[in-house]
Design a protein around this nucleic acid. Structure first.
Lengths: 339, 339
DNA sequence: ATAAAAATAGTAAACGTTTACTATTTTAAA
DNA sequence: TTTAAAATAGTAAACGTTTACTATTTTTAT
């Protein structure tokens, strides 16, 4: 059997309380005793049982993170930011992938709750779970912060990039390049898509450039198929479309559009301009290099981690919001409209 | 306070043992009682406390996964495979990123141990930790499986792609294209690099093509800098090198070489041929499209998960090895040597 | 109707810690 | 010295489950 605190206490001829105090250092112990205990701990290679410890303390040093997909590099970069912070603070990360499925997302969260995690970060929560009080109930019980979802629930903290501004940046850029017929490509079940769509519709309607048929939804599905799904969809639509530009809600979709163009022998940007969103590493490798809206993914993650940490360490559970600026990175996929 | 099994027992006027039995269904309970208890559970919104439960059972339904980096899509794809399996089996995944740091890797593992995880998967374990008995000690205590590390410890299970064969595939392919001066590019602290290097050295020496100066090590460092680090290094070396081809140990490094070539105005594959390793999604987007050794990353992950699951569910702790075949995917980055 | 067997339910210990409370030892003050 | 105060150590309860063991009830066989 594994050595426990009892074994240590016995061998050191002290009470288990004393051993516990030596380990935790939260109560004075005479130096001589301390050293004796420490020696026994070393000799027995004793390691405190985290499970027992956290069970007793009625909390855990685990932080739960839910992402819709592990496949889109966007989430990896965000995780990178989250990770850094918590490893330093000696929390462990529990990662759960919702695959864009609201039920699975709830399951993850409930699982985290049952485990008494100290806090939860949800990246791009599923719209269905945002529409009811599910997350409000969670937020009342435990520190919770959203990444890239905002305004749905006033009392839930978030850090988000300003997706409305970002979308406008992209669309206006296309407009400045004289494009009028701009395809809008989105997926399912994410706030991010809704916000961008709203911005798109708003701008286009205001200028009377809006056409229902320009709105393309590639549906959901595992995001490791995003590129191909988008390509398929675009392959159907593009030949009969008078669009001269595309705004894709993320770079993976933009990549799909690029691939479709290559199949159809459509020149980018001469015949079709494309702007993406996220600026994942991939976008620099796409040929032509993708013009895209950059969001600082690492910062998104690390700010969220910091926010959560603050919440965990204080009892003031008022909600905080952090909105990150984003910028357009101009590369090669946009040209002036030739029509 | 949260409702506990005691609250349920009280309200249902039964003992906590009965409630426990209803929850676990591992002992007969009269239907009427069962329903009464279930009703109370629902009315109280009782959720069993996982911490208490797993603490009592002296195990957890957590599986720990260590990866060197979350940034290289290779690991994301592997995780995808791992993930699928465990979510179905209702295990939770604890993810830890070692950043190629042996100390950090040990810390992760020890943390997992203290948490009584049911098993551990280590993707590309750090060579330093492989050189001593650290992992053997772990494997004796808990189900452990390596991904992409093999032969170091005969009694540790692994699933790996055949990196020796893979490397030979790549190098021989280059040789068939008449290349003699082949740069070998690797990073630090991974078995995978060592194995590939060995294959490279073996083949090249046998043919008397071997030159020490063709061996390039880009050092370690966070792998989100792999591309740029490689580019820097290659930028220094390439101008004064007579190499006509490059074998890079992974696609990220290959991407770095491609970027360097673009800066130096070296045509691929006319002036320099490149073959990578992994076949991550990125490699299809690199221009020219990268010729690379494909390993089935998803399978790597899911097989490892399956192996671990078997180990967890049986007491036979004998080690199993699974070696996955890989193949060369020919794209556009290799041409016949013109010199 | 009774005894034995089977089915169901309850009691209490155990899992490995932390910590409030109490007891003892040491130090300081008188 | 003696006594009070401070420092240190010990005792035992608590955290929320599971489960071996025991007790009770129900069923079956006679």
């Amino acid at each position: 059997m594994k050595t426990t605190i009892v074994d240590v206490a016995k061998k050191a001829k002290v009470s288990i309380a004393t051993v516990s105090r030596v380990i935790n250092g939260n109560y004075p112990v005479k130096e001589a005793t301390r050293e004796k205990v420490l020696a026994v701990i070393r000799s027995l290679k004793y390691v405190p049982n985290m499970q027992a410890r956290e069970f007793n303390r009625q909390k855990s040093t685990i932080v739960g993170v839910v992402v819709p997909s592990i496949y889109n590099m966007f989430f990896a970069e965000v995780m990178n930011g989250v990770e850094e912070h918590f490893t330093n603070e000696s929390y462990s990360l529990m990662l759960c992938c919702s695959k864009n499925d609201s039920k699975l997302e709830m399951r993850c969260i409930n699982d985290f709750m049952a485990r008494n995690v100290s806090g939860i970060i949800v990246v791009s929560p599923h719209t269905e779970n945002l529409q009811n009080t599910f997350y409000e109930r969670i937020a009342r019980q435990i520190p919770l912060v959203f990444i890239n979802s905002y305004e749905k629930h006033p009392n839930i903290s978030y850090v988000s990039n300003d997706q409305d501004a970002g979308a406008r940046l992209a669309i206006n850029y296309l407009l400045e390049h004289k494009h009028r017929d701009i395809l809008f490509i989105r997926g399912e079940h994410s706030d991010s898509y809704d916000i961008k769509e709203q911005a798109y519709v708003d701008i286009m309607k205001r200028r009377h450039y809006f056409h229902e048929k320009h709105m393309i939804n590639i549906g959901d599905g595992n995001s490791n198929e995003t590129v191909d799904n988008t390509m398929q969809k675009v392959l159907e639509i593009l030949p009969s479309s008078e669009a001269t530009a595309v705004f894709a809600c993320n770079d993976l979709m933009a990549a799909g559009v690029v691939n479709a163009c290559k199949k159809l022998n459509i020149a980018i940007p001469e015949e079709l301009s494309i702007v993406g969103y996220d600026n994942i590493a991939l976008s620099r490798f796409i040929e032509p290099k993708l013009t895209t809206v950059e969001q600082n993914m690492f910062l998104l993650g690390s700010q969220a981690a910091q926010l959560l940490l603050e919440k965990i360490n204080s009892d003031n559970q008022s909600s905080k919001r952090i909105m990150l600026e984003n910028s357009l990175v101009e590369r090669e996929s946009v040209g002036v409209c030739s029509r």
